[in-house]
Design a protein around this nucleic acid. Structure first.
Lengths: 199, 199
DNA sequence: ACGCTAGCTGACCGATCGGTCAGAGCCTGT
DNA sequence: ACAGGCTCTGACCGATCGGTCAGCTAGCGT
């Protein structure tokens, strides 16, 4: 029987977490199995015992995030679009971003160089669907740009940006409302500003 | 005397351009000197003849962009801040983004993994200064996030995003006005919306 | 005609890459 | 006490990495 869930994390869990950090900060190509192994306190052979290959490790690391994003999109597609449903979607989306910042950053900023890897391609079509959905069909350049900036901007800000712009990452409960305002402004621009004028 | 400027580009120019494309799309770590050489039609040895090292090549590729960004910031800092000067700054900034999209994408998305390389560090402090300037001192989390999203979002959208969101990159004169609206909205939120409500 | 230099290249270097494999250590069921 | 799995590891593999070096070639000044 597996330990009662409060034992120390298993090797494969530790390795996944370590690998994710490395992939997000140094890139997939820039991360060696040796680095991952050293950082997690195992040997390179151990990494390859738990994961068939470096690529397979990437897949296992990213899959939960893609699954979650897919689920969010399905929910949004399943209901008729109203101002309310769109607002709820943006909310879910921000939860997703905050929970999976490292995964998001990884496949946002490296999808082009990792084409052909199944999980990356899945993420690619998912993002296109997201984009099409939010701009419902008729796709003005500005709408596309809004979506792209929100997506890429959030991915950058929450991983790379915060680490040296704001020297320390602000706590999630401070980031969330600010992120909500900005992303809402980008993705649901019809909505009236919810905060009083800044400054 | 050098050729009258309409001769075919010299090797080092071709190599810089090729290297930039590779760095922006596959990452610095993911790009080998062999790839650059092959793509440009030279040998690896030739690359190392023109540039002392892979790192030096990166520096030469990014320096013009950083210089330009520095100049834009200096101009903005030299004049008293008014709504007009801020508007002009955003305009310059967008010109910069459009002209140096690949360079921007490269050092935005890889600065963390390339720390220690002089040109990258220069870019780093420059971005912090930019951020501090735009948020003048008192730095609310939301303002930081606005700046980060504009910066990272633009870098992503104009390189990675456009290539598969909008299947083909829209012409610059179509992107520019849309980008201007969105970035202005993010960086100079006081200004009234300049476009009629969309859709 | 000659030598010099700039541009370029292939051969080669040690290090590291992702990946394979044959065990070593340990826990468990019998 | 023994056998059989898990987990983990070091030794090792061919390929490729960034980088060095000697030498080839074409053009130019003299």
């Amino acid at each position: 029987m597996p330990p009662p869930a409060n034992a120390r994390p298993s090797a494969s869990v530790e390795l996944r977490a370590t690998a994710l950090e490395q992939f997000a900060s140094v890139g997939f190509a820039g991360t060696s199995l040796q680095q991952i192994a050293d950082a997690a306190g195992y040997s390179k052979s151990s990494v390859l015992y738990h994961f068939a290959s470096k690529e397979a490790l990437l897949e296992e690391v990213l899959t939960p995030a893609i699954d979650r994003l897919e689920a969010i999109l399905e929910v949004f597609l399943a209901t008729a679009e109203t101002v309310e449903s769109r607002r709820r979607f943006v909310n879910d989306f921000i939860d997703f971003i905050l929970e999976f910042r490292l995964e998001l950053h990884t496949f946002i900023n490296q999808s082009q160089s990792l084409r052909g890897i199944p999980v990356i391609d899945r993420a690619g079509v998912l993002i296109v669907r997201l984009s099409d959905t939010l701009c419902h069909g008729e796709a003005s350049t500005e709408d596309r740009i809004r979506f792209g900036i929100a997506l890429g901007g959030a991915a950058y800000t929450l991983v790379a940006g915060m680490t040296f712009l704001g020297q320390e990452i602000a706590p999630a409960d401070e980031i969330r409302p600010a992120l909500l305002v900005v992303v809402t402004e980008l993705l649901a621009p019809v909505t009236v500003r919810t905060t009083p004028s800044r400054k």
